[in-house]
Nucleic acid binder design. Structure first.
Lengths: 332, 332
DNA sequence: CTGAAAGCGCTAACAT
DNA sequence: ATGTTAGCGCTTTCAG
């Protein structure tokens, strides 16, 4: 049978409340404490988190909602978040939402029934209402690498996507490109990236063709299709910006399919500086997000709120860094 | 305040046990049932999993131990496992162990305190004792894409790594390679892959140099280093087998660093058929594991045990498939 | 078919 | 400093 606090109390010859007190290290006489501790050891006692949580304590687990754990960028974040959370004694339950409103709603509801202590929405989300609901009920929440809708007063740690989009476009422009397309998925952070790109174009008096802003779902294949299509156009772009590395790979493959030499015939850029961007050939010019620091800050802020350390909400915007590799060059 | 079963009972004008009964859909009078149901709706009642689990029910969450969620192959599996588990009403709490014995032990102990219903060890593990302990205490466990030690009678779903290693080596040999090295991480499944490779070599009367079996940690960089080193050797291999795609990428980068042309100067193979193998250039010859079917089978077996449906343990060995791409060619 | 009551393992007043 | 006791929200006999 399972060992309970009663077994320990009995063995140690004290009451259960004394045992409970050493568990939560409150004031206990030195002798009692020793007896309890050794009883625990002998019995290999492990307190039940369920029972403890039922009386109002924390479960020390947090809900981690993300679009897709199979996405390399998300997976890298997950690892960082996990490590930081574990350091602080928390576990993560992961839920891939595919940017689907119903899934987000469903998972949040499920996890609340399981009494998770808080939620992290990483890499974007769709259903603003579920976040608002959480906020309204004072459930700790933080957005990580997910653009908050402007009227959402929620803790946020994200890279400045506008700046990222601006910088990458600006760099391409400095390389002589004038006809630049972008392929992005339908996520708020991509919108910001696109806005940055448009701003850069405008600042240089360059015209943005509507057809050159292409929205796709987050698959390599779709990006590839769009690339091939746009390359067949009468006046194809000389550079294509992928709103993330995965899409950039799709662009790369599409371009190769059309027998273009990268970067001479077409410059390509990614975003996120994932493993992929270092592995492909040519290596991708991309934008780095300081994942590790973002993730540990996000966890720390969330835990501060969970543990009632403070509760002034904050938005942290970290600056991205342009990483120039071999998928871009001056236009010929 | 939180809505409890008492609130529902009161509103419906019945006792809490009646409410409980409709919750677990047991025999309840039609009228009472209706009243309870509508009360639940009006109050937006959500039962507490904690309380229910405390009385002996399941938590519907399972512990998912894996070496590193940031590894693309693992992440792809995680997604499949997650989807299947969610379909069946279960959540996953993930723990990256880095093949570290203490971490495995620690996480298992922690998750047991949280009363998870069972464990999945995916992609390998180190500490045989923690698995044996679980088994001894009748905690549902399954190994997924993790080689069981022969004397571990545990549910297992894995690809036949021996065959995979054999096939890939055999293919290289058929291309005329005689001097074949392998870079693998220190995991049991890699050992099997290596065993397959050795067998193939032996079957063709080829000599295996000890220095050509290189063990590395699972980083691109380490694989790259080892590759460069072995390439500097007097009699370098004409082909290098990476025990997974990540390592193969490292090999690719190392070879490129040495100004070799792939595959003409050096054939390279991976294992797992991850996204990486399709994205790199040249695309990788690799071995495909039918991830989706493996993962859903694993979840199904685990849940069958959790839900007491049956309890004959089984090992399922699925066959790998050789995927020939552009990183290999006949030896010159 | 329905309800009263005991109990799951632990915490937190409140007494002692 | 330690023990007693009443819950936390739910399930489950056991009566009625």
């Amino acid at each position: 049978m399972k060992i309970t606090i009663y077994d320990v109390a009995e063995k140690a010859g004290v009451s259960i409340s004394t045992v409970s007190k050493v568990l939560n290290n409150q004031q206990v006489g030195k002798k009692s404490k020793e007896k309890v501790l050794s009883a625990m050891n002998e019995l290999k006692y492990k307190p039940s988190v369920l029972a403890s949580a039922l009386t109002g304590k924390r479960t020390s687990t947090i809900g981690f909602l993300l679009p897709d754990i199979a996405n390399p960028f998300i997976a890298e974040m997950a690892r960082q978040v996990e490590d930081r959370a574990h350091e602080r004694g928390y576990n993560l339950v992961i839920c891939s939402t595919d940017f689907r409103s119903e899934k987000e709603e469903h998972y949040v509801s499920l996890l609340r029934q399981k009494s998770v202590d808080g939620f992290i929405f990483a890499g974007g989300f769709k259903n603003r209402n579920v976040v608002m609901e959480l906020l309204k009920e004072n459930v700790p929440v933080i957005l990580l690498a997910a653009e908050p809708h402007p009227n959402l007063t929620v803790n946020t740690v994200t890279v400045d996507n506008f700046v990222g989009g601006y910088e990458i476009a600006n760099y391409l422009i400095s390389q002589g490109h004038k006809n630049i397309a972008v392929i992005a998925e339908d996520a708020t952070s991509s919108q910001e990236r696109i806005r940055g790109y448009k701003q850069a174009m405008q600042d240089h008096n360059l015209y943005v063709q509507d057809e050159h802003i292409m929205i796709c779902n987050s698959s390599v294949e779709h990006a590839q299709k769009l690339t091939e299509a746009t390359l067949d156009t009468p006046n194809p772009p000389t550079a294509i910006i992928g709103a993330n590395d995965l899409l950039a790979i799709g662009i790369l493959i599409g371009a190769r399919e059309k027998n273009l030499v990268i970067p001479q015939d077409l410059s390509i850029t990614g975003f996120d500086n994932t493993l992929l961007s270092k592995c492909c050939d040519p290596t991708l010019t991309t934008v780095d997000q300081p994942i590790q620091s973002m993730c540990s800050q996000a966890v720390d802020i969330l835990l501060a709120e969970i543990e009632g350390k403070h509760n002034t909400r904050q938005k942290i915007l970290v600056l991205p860094k342009l990483i120039i590799r071999n998928s871009t060059c001056e236009v010929y």
